[in-house]
Computed example of a mutant assay.
Amino acid sequence: MKTVALILLGLITNAQSMVKEKPVNTGEELQFKLSYGWFTIGRGTFKISDDYVLRDGKECIEINVSGRTAGLAGVLSKVDDQWGAVVDKDNFLPYYSYRDLSEGDYDLEEHVYFDYDSMRVKVESSSANEEEPRPTRFYDLEKTNVFDMMGGLMYARSIDYRKLKNGDTVQLDAFFDKKFYDFEMIYHGIEMIKTKVGEIYCHKVVPIMQKNSVFKGEDAVTFWVSADANRLPLKVEADMNFGTAYCELTAYKNVKSGIDFN
């Protein structure tokens, strides 16, 4: 599911301001479907902890995400991935994140710790397929507003899009897979789209993807977030070298505003 990770990373954005009333609710749970063409190839769950947890005396939310292959894709190559993070509930900066990946013959367990006193990131990783343990690695934080994937996604939901005009560009700083990234995204205004959870007005954004072997061009990914109090990530469309992939919200519960959709 590294392709999914790249898509999500492209959504992380470090905007000038966030809405005062954050679209975050403890216990929120989102269900997603990943498809390629007409075929469903995976399903995922995004879950926020029922209660706040404390880190450095600050209230934080714990996020856990699971992704599994489905349908024919599950027969050809089984994927069972777990992702997560502990991030500040107000600014979504990370204190800890993890990846536990099982993808066919590949596996990885990784734990990342963000230390703002020493301004360093510590990465511990291991693989059941390797006889020797991997060394612990440290990376210097040159900025305090560097997001991990999960906190960055929450930040993207909290941008005050009302202050953006069509064509405005927004910057981001992120750390993922032992690398620092500097991304941009372009805001494309509001449009109504038909989704699995109804016809909804959305903010449309296009992350500028760095050159890689997965996506077709720098504007290959489009992201829609609901233009309401929940700022739900409704749909991602990605033009890839092997075709177009979609990630769509199919159900949600315990959102901040409104009733459950199952």
Results as ranks from 00 to 15, higher is better:
Tyr187Trp: 05
Glu109Met: 10
Ala229Cys: 10
Asp107Leu: 06
Leu93Gln: 04
Leu101His: 05
Phe114Val: 03
Asp177Met: 04
Thr144Gln: 15
Lys163Ser: 10
Glu110Val: 06
Asn230Met: 07
Phe215Asp: 00
Pro94Asn: 11
Glu109Arg: 11
Gly152Gln: 10
Lys179Ser: 13
Glu130Asp: 14
Ile190Tyr: 01
Pro233Asn: 06
Asn166Cys: 08
Asp148Leu: 06
Gln210Trp: 06
Ser125Asp: 14
Ser125Leu: 08
Asn145Trp: 11
Trp224Met: 03
Glu132Ala: 14
Val225Lys: 00
Asp219Cys: 15
Ser226Val: 03
Lys196Met: 08
Ala128Asp: 15
Glu109Thr: 11
Val214Arg: 06
Val146Trp: 00
Val112Ile: 13
Phe138Arg: 14
Lys235Val: 09
Val121Gln: 00
Phe175Gln: 00
Ala227Glu: 05
Tyr98Met: 13
Met185Thr: 09
Pro94Gly: 08
Asn230Gly: 06
Phe223Pro: 00
Val146Phe: 02
Val206Tyr: 05
Asp107Tyr: 05
Lys163Ala: 09
Tyr161Thr: 07
Thr136Gln: 12
Lys211Thr: 13
Phe92His: 03
Tyr139Met: 08
Phe180Trp: 03
Ile200Val: 10
Leu141Tyr: 02
Asp219Trp: 13
Gly151Trp: 02
Asp115Tyr: 07
Ala128Glu: 15
Leu172His: 12
Ser118His: 14
Lys204Phe: 05
Glu110Gly: 03
Lys211Trp: 11
Leu141Val: 04
Ala229Trp: 02
Met209Gln: 08
Val170Glu: 04
Asp173Val: 02
Gln171Thr: 14
Tyr113His: 12
Pro133Tyr: 10
Phe215Cys: 03
Cys202Val: 07
Ile193Arg: 02
Ser97Phe: 04
Phe147Met: 08
Arg231Cys: 05
Ile159Met: 11
Asp168Tyr: 02
His111Asp: 15
Glu184Gln: 13
Val205Cys: 09
Pro94His: 09
Asp182Ala: 15
Met209Ala: 07
Pro233Ala: 10
Lys143Pro: 03
